[in-house]
């Protein structure tokens, strides 16, 4: 994988996907049917005394227990907050850096090894280092999540800027656009790629948010899963897994909806 890949993602991924949004989210719900069927089968055919594979009805009881302790909603809120803050910061920094790197002529090739190195650093490996430097707090989680989810946004933005149509860049010069005006035209043209980057980054950010909570025991859904696991409460682990999955689903729908509404003015792909 080279840093050139994002553009190919742009060409196939985003264009293909934009059409799906006309389905108003019906398709993803139908897509969940196999899981629902699996759970029903599990419920009726599973061993009610199993330690490792508790019945889905037991998950429900377990999650109600967590809710009664008052941890559930505050944890979901904490995870969501870390996630939202991180993705916003990653989008802002990633887009700015992407535009900057895409605009400089030598930024094309010279920085590739560095960017490849950085983006392939596993997030889990960053957590201990960040914990040493920043301590285990939400700021540390934010840094880790931003560091690991910024790459798709940064690289996609850079690729979009580098591949700006020559006719468009000539137009920008010929019409003597400068400063903010010029930037807004470039951002507008790169927007589909930027949003695709954000769509790829969002699930990544959620995963790393949970991971950071896992490793550092910061409050959040990740920490709940960890403590449930440490207490051998397998029903609770499964239940929280479903919560995490629903959270991911919500994130994906939200990002896709934002993307579709922003790109409405861009029209169908050419």
């Amino acid at each position: 994988m080279t840093t050139r890949t994002p553009i190919s993602l742009t060409k196939s991924g985003i264009r293909g996907n934009r059409r799906h949004h006309d389905g108003k989210g019906v398709a993803p719900m139908i897509g969940l049917l196999p899981i629902a069927i699996l759970l029903v089968i599990w419920q009726f055919l599973g061993n009610p005394h199993s330690v490792f594979f508790p019945l889905p009805s037991h998950w429900w009881t377990a999650i109600q227990g967590v809710e009664q302790q008052g941890n559930l909603w505050s944890s979901i809120l904490a995870t969501s907050l870390t996630f939202i803050e991180s993705i916003i910061v990653a989008a802002l920094i990633g887009t700015s850096l992407g535009i900057a790197l895409g605009s400089i002529r030598w930024g094309g090739k010279a920085l590739d090894p560095l960017l490849d190195f950085l983006r392939n650093l596993p997030a889990a490996a960053l957590v201990p280092a960040a914990a040493i430097v920043l301590g285990t707090n939400t700021k540390m989680a934010l840094v880790i999540v931003v560091l690991s989810s910024i790459w798709p946004i940064l690289l996609n933005t850079r690729a979009e800027i580098q591949n700006l149509s020559p006719v468009l860049s000539s137009s920008i010069i010929n019409l003597r656009l400068s400063g903010w005006h010029r930037l807004s035209v470039m951002i507008g043209s790169a927007l589909p790629g930027i949003l695709l980057g954000i769509r790829v980054a969002a699930p990544l950010a959620l995963i790393v948010t949970l991971l950071a909570e896992f490793i550092t025991n910061l409050s959040g859904v990740g920490a709940l899963i960890l403590s449930a696991q440490q207490n051998f409460n397998s029903a609770e682990v499964y239940a929280l897994l479903v919560v995490a999955g629903l959270l991911a689903l919500a994130v994906n729908s939200l990002v896709s909806a934002i993307e579709a509404s922003v790109l409405r003015r861009h029209g169908p792909s050419t």
Binding site: S165, V167, L168, S171, V185, S189, R265, H266, G267
Partner: peptide
Amino acid sequence: DYGNALLRWR
């Protein structure tokens, strides 16, 4: 190439 010369979001 009017397609690229014009801004499609405007």
